[in-house]
Design a protein around this nucleic acid. Structure first.
Lengths: 131, 131
DNA sequence: CCGTATCCTACGGGATACTG
DNA sequence: CAGTATCCCGTAGGATACGG
């Protein structure tokens, strides 16, 4: 897989943040790197949810960040937002096919993290002890 | 693959940042989510480099962040730091086997990003136009 | 119920200057 | 050459209050 070179090239020239969406990797990283995106993707993977449901399942997220993260996911086409015209209104969020595809692409990373977690913690302890 | 549920559980209870290293996913995400880690991993994948070489290959990174990111990678056991006792000293960084493993685990995500980049950009344009 | 608006703080990260 | 030290700014993100 030699296309890493092209990725590197693009990420590098994108270092100073050219325009939005110049480099695909940075694009996806900027979305996933924040505090709640991945967690929401995981949650939505097991079925569509309403705003309030998500809120209850994630007691630690602020309303502001839940709204914002969901809006970003929607904007990037990873989730859909459906407003049901009831009184009071209810809004349902669901993962798009592309969102599910992302989830699958995340699988190996997940497994790597699980598999190497002990190694990482040990490495950290060694490093910190040496200091 | 039902272990997503356990991941979600741990990420959720880790929402308020319990202790460092509680959740493996957040651990890896916190490292990869920053501005330069992935780029450095990609670079080091094609061979060990000295500090100055990396610096020249990444004109946009500040010396401060290069040092710090390399230190974090080293601390997490993803890279090694070897000091050659010359005058003046030279320091070489290389990816560990675990670093390479991470690189491979990143492959699918990379391919997803490339494959869906156009879709994402289109989704964004649609979303922003609707606003 | 589902947001938006405002305020405030912590931290990531750049620029620059200095050391072994 | 390979860092450390300082300063400074922008943004992520929490708390709170209000609106449709």
């Amino acid at each position: 897989m030699g296309d890493i070179d092209t990725v590197v090239a693009r990420m590098r020239e994108d270092g100073g943040r050219v325009e939005e969406g110049a480099c695909p990797i940075r694009d996806v990283l900027d979305q996933l790197g924040d505090k709640w995106s991945m967690l929401l993707i995981f949650l939505l993977a097991s079925g569509a949810r309403r705003f309030g449901e998500l809120r209850r399942e994630l007691p630690d997220i602020s309303q502001r960040m839940l709204t914002q993260t969901l809006r970003d996911l929607t904007r990037n086409g990873l989730a859909t937002r459906t407003v049901h015209p009831t009184r009071p209104p209810s809004v349902e969020y669901a993962l798009t096919p592309q969102g599910f595809a992302l989830l699958e692409a995340l699988g190996p990373l997940l497994r790597w993290a699980e598999a190497h977690h002990d190694y990482i913690r040990a490495a950290r302890r060694r490093f910190d002890a040496a200091a």
